Simulated scan of single mutants.
Amino acid sequence: MIRSMTAYAQRSLQTDRGQLTWELRSVNQRYLDLHLRLPEEFRVLEPQVRDALKQTLNRGKVEASLRFQPDPGAESAHLTLDTQLAQRLGHLVRDLAAQTGSHAAEPDLVNLLGWPGLVTHERLDFEREHVAAVELLGEALLALVAAREQEGAAIAAMIEERLAGIEQQVAEVRAHLPEIRAGLDQRLRERLAALEQPVDPGRIEQEVVLALQKLDVDEELDRLGVHVAEIRRVLGLDEPVGRRLDFLMQELNREANTLGSKAAVVETGQAAVELKVLIEQMREQIQNVE
Rank of each mutant, 00 (worst) to 15 (best):
L112R: 07
W115F: 13
G117F: 05
V119H: 05
T120H: 09
T120S: 14
T120Y: 03
H121S: 11
E122N: 08
E122V: 13
E122K: 14
R123C: 06
L124N: 02
L124H: 07
L124C: 06
D125V: 12
F126I: 11
F126S: 04
E127V: 11
R128M: 12
H130T: 09
V131T: 13
A132T: 06
A133K: 10
V134Q: 13
L136D: 10
E139M: 08
L141H: 08
L142V: 11
L142W: 04
A143Y: 08
A143L: 13
L144W: 10
L144E: 11
L144P: 14
V145A: 14
V145T: 15
V145H: 08
A146I: 06
E151R: 11
G152S: 06
A153L: 13
A153W: 04
A153Y: 02
A154Q: 15
I155F: 05
A156W: 04
A156D: 13
A157D: 14
I159D: 02
I159N: 05
E160T: 12
E161Q: 14
R162T: 01
R162E: 11
R162V: 03
L163M: 05
A164T: 10
I166E: 00
I166M: 03
E167L: 09
Q168N: 11
Q168V: 07
Q169R: 15
V170P: 02
A171M: 01
R174G: 01
R174K: 09
R174H: 02
A175M: 01
A175R: 13
A175F: 00
H176L: 04
L177F: 00
R181H: 03
R181V: 05
A182K: 01
A182N: 01
D185W: 00
D185E: 13
Q186S: 08
R187Q: 01
L192C: 04
L192K: 02
A193Q: 14
A193I: 00
A194G: 03
A194M: 01
A194I: 00
L195C: 13
L195K: 04
V199H: 04
D200S: 12
D200P: 10
P201L: 06
P201M: 09
P201H: 05
R203T: 10
V209T: 14
L212K: 09
L215A: 15
L215D: 05
L215Y: 12
E219M: 05
E219H: 07
D222V: 14
L224G: 12
L224S: 09
V226E: 13
H227A: 13
A229K: 14
E230T: 14
E230G: 05
